[in-house]
């Protein structure tokens, strides 16, 4: 199955580039909110990888993990946003 293999390689390249971009943004900043936003996207990239793996291997085992990851991203963003507004007034 070379066709499926090519698709997997393409997905790997795309997601690696996306993860690299978000990690660069986390490192550079410039502000805390930018970093939180980028971390959220990094979690979404992770979610995309989990979903692709489910589709390729035909199971649903990662779905709970997928939801957990997105909930963690949500709680993290909201918590940091509140923290930032409180601190600076």
């Amino acid at each position: 199955m070379t066709g499926a293999h090519a698709v997997l390689v393409a997905v790997g390249v795309i997601l690696t580039l996306a993860a690299g971009g978000t990690i660069y943004r986390i490192a550079v900043g410039p502000s805390l909110l930018d970093r939180v936003l980028a971390a959220d996207v990094l979690l979404a990239v992770l979610g995309a990888a989990l979903a692709t793996e489910m589709a390729v291997n035909r199971h649903l085992d990662n779905l709970v993990l997928l939801i957990a990851v997105s909930v963690i991203g949500f709680i993290g963003s909201v918590a940091v946003a509140r923290f930032v507004s409180d601190r600076r007034g």
């Binding site: 795309i14 997601l15 580039l17 996306a18 993860a19 978000t22 936003l37 979404a44 995309a48």
Partner: peptide, 28 residues
């Protein structure tokens, strides 16, 4: 799958290329 993964890449490109926080949020 390919389109879905491209959307992640779109978010990353937006994060890198947009100039300020609020426009990055649109992309992200």
């Amino acid at each position: 799958i390919l389109a879905g993964c491209l959307m992640s890449l779109a978010a990353a490109i937006g994060l890198l290329r947009f100039p300020d926080l609020l426009s990055r949020m649109h992309a992200a």
